[in-house]
Deep mutational scan, measured.
Amino acid sequence: TRVETATETAWISLVTALHLVLGLNAVLGLLLLRWQFPAHYRRLRHALW
């Protein structure tokens, strides 16, 4: 059971790390998009709101 718990903890930390990386990538991607295409982003925002 100790090995199972260790594997579980490893999986949880792995999934958490993946989520963090994906979240960071999403934020960075959005920031890059805003920086690269400000006009396009503004138009998109007007369409959404």
Score class of each variant (00 low, 15 high):
Thr1Asn: 06
Thr1Ile: 11
Thr1Ser: 10
Thr1Gln: 13
Thr1Trp: 05
Arg2Pro: 12
Arg2Cys: 12
Val3Trp: 08
Val3Thr: 05
Val3Lys: 02
Glu4Val: 03
Glu4Arg: 02
Glu4Asp: 07
Glu4Tyr: 03
Thr5Gln: 01
Thr5Ala: 04
Thr5Ser: 04
Ala6Lys: 12
Thr7Leu: 05
Thr7Ser: 11
Glu8Lys: 12
Glu8Val: 10
Glu8Asn: 14
Glu8Cys: 08
Glu8Met: 10
Glu8Phe: 13
Thr9Cys: 06
Thr9Val: 11
Thr9Met: 13
Ala10His: 13
Ala10Asp: 15
Ala10Ser: 13
Trp11Gly: 14
Trp11Met: 11
Trp11Ala: 15
Trp11Asn: 08
Ile12Ala: 15
Ile12Tyr: 08
Ile12Gly: 15
Ile12Gln: 14
Ser13Gly: 10
Ser13Val: 12
Ser13Tyr: 09
Ser13Glu: 12
Ser13Cys: 06
Leu14Val: 14
Leu14Met: 09
Leu14Phe: 13
Val15Asn: 14
Val15Ala: 12
Val15Met: 13
Val15Trp: 09
Val15His: 14
Val15Pro: 15
Thr16Ala: 11
Thr16Ser: 10
Thr16Tyr: 13
Thr16Leu: 15
Ala17Lys: 08
Ala17Arg: 08
Ala17Pro: 09
Ala17Ser: 05
Ala17Cys: 12
Leu18Asp: 00
Leu18Gly: 12
His19Ile: 15
Leu20Gln: 03
Leu20Arg: 02
Leu20Asn: 00
Leu20Asp: 00
Leu20Pro: 00
Val21Ala: 02
Val21Asp: 00
Val21Lys: 00
Leu22Ala: 02
Leu22Phe: 14
Gly23Val: 13
Gly23Pro: 14
Leu24Val: 07
Leu24Arg: 00
Asn25Met: 15
Asn25Trp: 15
Asn25Arg: 00
Asn25Cys: 15
Asn25Ile: 15
Ala26Val: 09
Ala26Leu: 10
Ala26Met: 11
Leu28Val: 11
Leu28Ile: 10
Gly29Cys: 07
Gly29Trp: 13
Leu30Arg: 01
Leu30Gly: 09
Leu30Val: 11
Leu30Gln: 01
Leu30Asp: 00
Leu30Ala: 10
Leu30Lys: 00
Leu30Asn: 01
Leu30Tyr: 14
Leu31Lys: 00
Leu31Glu: 02
Leu31Trp: 04
Leu32Cys: 09
Leu32Val: 10
Leu32Glu: 00
Leu33Asp: 00
Leu33Gln: 03
Arg34Gln: 03
Arg34Gly: 11
Trp35Glu: 04
Trp35His: 07
Trp35Ala: 07
Gln36Asn: 07
Phe37Tyr: 05
Phe37Thr: 02
Phe37Trp: 10
Phe37Cys: 12
Pro38Ile: 03
Pro38Val: 06
Pro38Leu: 05
Pro38Ser: 06
Pro38Gly: 06
Pro38Lys: 04
Ala39Lys: 06
His40Asp: 03
His40Gln: 10
His40Glu: 05
His40Ala: 12
Tyr41Val: 07
Arg42Ile: 08
Arg42Ala: 12
Arg42Gly: 08
Arg43Asn: 10
Arg43Gly: 04
Arg43Ser: 06
Arg43Pro: 02
Arg43Cys: 05
Leu44Ala: 03
Leu44Arg: 01
Leu44Ile: 07
Leu44Val: 06
Arg45Ile: 13
Arg45Trp: 08
His46Ile: 05
His46Arg: 07
His46Trp: 04
Ala47Asp: 06
Ala47Gly: 05
Ala47Glu: 04
Leu48Gly: 04
Leu48Ala: 07
Trp49Cys: 11
Trp49Glu: 02
